[in-house]
Design a protein around this nucleic acid. Structure first.
Length: 845
RNA sequence: GCCCGGAUGGCGAAAUUGGCAGACGCAGCGGACUUAAAAUCCGCAGGCCGCAAGGCCGUGGGGGUUCAAGUCCCCCUCCGGGCACCA
């Protein structure tokens, strides 16, 4: 019985044993002090939301990060490999509603469950640095940062549109609006409501966030492009069109017109301004309200436009809105030529981009052309192609052209014209060059319970008063009844709301909004470096040692929000003097999704594979190794359970081989490998080739799938030589090197099996503390090579030559081959191409 | 519409710099061991034709460059992702 069990690879026995040992040694995965003298390496995986269950996407993400961390430990680095919990957020409140469990309790028990799963997977985290964002020792620093930002004018309040779900009776974040509906109530249309909201002035850093992308060479190009588009820098000109109410044709009365507030438009093509034939306002534009106040008919039409916008927005497809517009009956004057143009209101003009007003130049803009054609507005061409042979077809939107019909500017190129028109506008005071961004300030108010309370106090006498630092944290009241009523839940807790004004000591009310959870994840990775600090968010000296993160790993779904907010936060912290780095992470890696049966794993598709089931059936090593083996990490991974079984079979083969030959290997300790030959040489050669290949992959390419394949090849060779191994044709020191190295190579990929076999081989200490094997180039080199020989590009034969054979030798060997002879008989060899070490190609006629 | 990816055997994939297409694994087939099965081990395996030797075809489709193309260039199709009246 005992014998039978010994012959079987049993992860269910091996893995719990090592879990226990690792748990009992807190230094196992702990970062060393910053003065340890080793080079540092900070590897970070995105922290999960504690839903209560790890999914395969997590397993994949963490398997990559853990393999890297283990590899770096073995390379002698001081590694920081932390983990935490993005623990605030609406699901906890939903769970409270559903199960009557307090959000805190629900969240903490989920964390415990997921931490247990991580331990089962054998992920090597330094739990001493664990960060849980919903605990006051973390979120107090959110509040602290909020106050520092408030002091610097980076926090402000304004009235703003919010997404409102009438069913939940609460505000939703943009990302919780799915195709115009609430993510929880898929058929409930989200409404827009006006509320006073807190904002972070991220736009103050728009230019720097954009410029910084150029330096992030080791971020995926895809992510950088997405961020560039999101920031959306646009160079152009703002120009005032004066109101010209006087009826009649011809030039308006300038004196009269300039008395009123002009309409400021933004354009990237001020060179086309002589072709402006109308001014278009967004329905929400302030002037529209002024017009409609005295014109009920117009108001009805504008309401119609607003309604169309709203419907399109709810459908999640503002881009597809059919263009509609109404003339206001009012007129504006082009400041360059005094020309009067009608003012329209149109549904496709965005109120929150630029100035909410445009000049319409139908001849040189697709949209304006469509609109003008529909409503019969005049179309005036003012740019002609610089190449006169090109026929002009309107709209002509190219930037390469020459001005016509533009008075004194005729003949100028578009670029020249833009410059002089901007100069004139500046001189005469009716406009200026302007750079605008699509990026909006970050609305952080949430009318929810389970988030960081915003540390502000409303006093009737003193107005808005920040909570003094020594009164932080503003703690969430623990017992609160979660209901479906609208408004901030904290507003219904008098003990929380009622306070005294820090300035006057009089009665005052606390702010009841909480912060967006993206605040939590914007700086959590700094807290890891000094997680227990209760005087500051972290010690700047320690952060300076660890930052920037050397490798950040996560899903591409965070390409914009989290990764822009984090970059913003880093720049703010730098300006607060807390850190010296400009960017949080030197390298970013975005892994692919986990797919099953052609679709992303999801509950609704019913194709979810539980990590726990996989671990129970095949072990954590096989589960992790499969997730690395099935596809390169940047591509989508198709989960096939048979593949996990295959990896598990492979690990069993390794286990049997090691168990069988370990006794011989152990006797090789302390002995040197003498000049190997025969099967020993072949195996050592394969080993050193494998070490070189895997080392190279860890250093950059990260094709862990081929690393696993390479180890499989090595094991296959060992297996194939098993008869010779049994016959003693491999000496003890060679066997030791083979098995030892194999275990070291496996250590980052299958840590349990590696730890177990390390012990079986009689090694002292943890395999993680053993140095990564080094490839010996002399041993890795082949002494003979097989060179394919082609005739006219078609493979004819393969010749074996010495690895250092000269071109002439290779050519002679190739020509001597029988098959080559018969192929070339009676023909002329026109050309011989010899690529040493690669191939020979004979061109014959 | 614009911008990124991607398309290779029955399936997941490999080919790192233009140099033997299909490594490694899954599924399949044949054999050994076994009373039998499981497990394990050995072997076969891109397609078509052929008894075989061998031949022809083959990396989404079409063209091109090259002695040589999965890889480089041009055009097109399909799939995935992101953005989308941003003035």
């Amino acid at each position: 019985m005992a014998d039978e069990r010994e012959l079987r690879y049993d992860p269910a026995a091996i893995e719990p044993k090592w879990q226990e040992r690792w748990a009992s040694d807190p230094t196992m995965y702990a970062a060393e002090p910053v003065f340890c003298g080793k080079p540092k390496y900070y590897v970070l995986e995105m922290l999960p939301y504690p839903s209560g269950q790890l999914h395969m996407g997590h397993v994949r993400n963490y398997s990559i990060g853990d393999a890297l961390a283990r590899h770096m430990w073995m390379r002698g680095y001081n590694v920081l490999h932390p983990m935490g919990w993005d623990a605030f957020g609406l699901p906890a409140e939903n769970a409270a509603l559903k199960n009557n469990t307090p959000p805190r309790e629900w969240t903490l028990s989920n964390i415990a469950a997921m931490k247990r799963q991580m331990e089962r997977l054998g992920l090597g985290y330094d739990w001493a640095t664990e960060v849980t964002t919903c605990l006051p020792d973390y979120y107090r620093w959110n509040q602290w940062f909020f106050l520092r930002m408030y002091e610097r004018g980076l926090v402000y309040r304004k009235k703003s549109k919010v997404n409102w779900c009438p069913e939940c009776a609460t505000v939703l974040a943009n990302e919780q609006v799915v195709e115009g509906c609430c993510w929880r109530h898929e058929t409930t249309l989200v409404e827009q409501r006006d509320l006073v909201q807190w904002f972070f002035r991220i736009t103050a850093y728009a230019q720097e966030l954009l410029d910084g992308l150029d330096k992030l060479d080791d971020w995926p190009e895809k992510v950088r492009i997405m961020q560039r588009n999101w920031i959306g820098r646009s160079e152009g000109t703002e120009v005032d069109f004066f109101l010209a109410e006087e009826a009649g044709e011809g030039n308006a009365n300038l004196e009269q017109a300039t008395e009123k507030k002009p309409i400021r438009v933004f354009t990237t093509r001020v060179d086309t301004i002589f072709g402006a034939t109308s001014v278009q306002l967004a329905p929400q534009h302030a002037l529209v309200a002024a017009f409609t106040a005295t014109d009920p008919a117009l108001k009805a039409q504008v309401d119609e436009l607003l309604d169309q916008q709203k419907k399109a927005r709810e459908a999640g497809d503002l881009g597809a809105i059919e263009k509609h517009g109404v003339p206001t009956g009012h007129f504006a004057m082009n400041p360059y030529n005094g020309k009067r143009v009608p003012i329209w209101v149109a549904n496709y003009i965005l109120a929150d981009y630029g100035t909410g007003a445009i000049m319409s130049v139908p001849a040189h803009d697709e949209r304006d052309f469509e609109f003008a054609t529909k409503y019969g507005l005049p179309i005036t061409q003012v740019i002609k192609p610089s190449d006169p042979s090109v026929a002009t077809e309107l709209p002509f939107c190219a930037h390469e052209g020459v001005l016509v019909n533009s008075g004194e500017y005729d003949g100028l190129s578009c670029d020249e014209a833009q410059k002089s028109l901007q100069d004139v506008a500046g001189r005469k005071g009716f406009g200026e060059a302007k750079i605008i961004f699509r990026l909006k300030d970050w609305g952080v108010s949430r009318q929810r319970y389970w988030g960081t309370p915003i540390p502000m106090i409303h006093c009737d006498k003193d107005g808005l008063v920040p909570v003094p630092d020594d009164q932080l944290p503003v703690v969430l009241p623990p017992q609160i009844e979660i209901t479906q009523q609208g408004g901030s839940p904290l507003g219904r807790v008098p003990e929380f709301v009622n306070t005294t004004c820090p300035k006057c000591g009089g009665p005052a009310r606390r702010e009841t909004d909480t912060m967006d959870t993206f605040v939590d994840s914007s700086w959590y990775f700094y807290r890891y470096t000094d997680a227990k600090n209760d005087h500051a968010p972290f010690d700047p000296k320690v952060a300076q040692y660890w930052f920037p993160i050397d490798q950040y790993i996560g899903g591409v779904e965070h390409a914009i929000l989290h990764l822009i907010y984090s970059r913003f936060w880093t720049k703010v912290m730098r300006d607060l003097g807390l850190i010296v780095n400009d960017e949080p992470a030197r390298r970013l890696f975005t892994q692919g999704m986990v797919i099953k049966d052609g679709a992303k794993m999801s509950k609704s598709k019913g194709n979810v594979v539980s990590p726990d089931d996989m671990i129970a059936k095949y072990g954590a090593d096989a589960t992790r190794m499969y997730s690395l083996f099935a596809a390169p990490p940047d591509r989508d991974l198709d989960w096939q359970e048979d593949g996990v079984a295959g990896v598990s079979r492979f690990l069993a083969r390794v286990w049997r081989l090691a168990e069988k030959h370990a006794p011989l290997a152990r006797t090789g300790r302390g002995l040197t490998v003498d000049a190997p030959s025969g099967v020993s040489l072949k195996l050592l050669r394969k080993l050193h080739q494998t070490i070189a290949k895997i080392t190279l992959d860890f250093e950059g390419r990260w094709h862990f799938n081929t690393c696993v394949a390479a180890i499989m090849e090595l094991v296959n060779d060992l297996q194939a030589a098993d008869a010779q191994l049994d016959a003693g044709e491999v000496s003890a020191p060679v066997m030791l090197e083979l098995l030892r190295s194999l275990v070291l190579l496996l250590a980052p990929l299958a840590p349990y099996l590696a730890a177990e076999l390390w012990e079986v081989l009689g090694e002292e200490g943890a395999v993680l503390r053993a140095p990564w094997p080094v490839s010996n180039p002399g041993l890795a080199r082949e002494d003979e090579l097989e060179i394919p020989v082609q005739v006219n590009g078609k493979l004819v034969t393969v010749v074996t030559v010495a690895a250092d054979a000269t071109t002439a030798t290779i050519e002679a060997a190739a020509l001597a081959g029988e098959k080559v002879q018969s192929r070339t008989a009676g023909k002329t060899v026109v050309k011989v191409i010899v690529v040493p070490g690669k191939l020979v190609n004979l061109v014959v006629k």
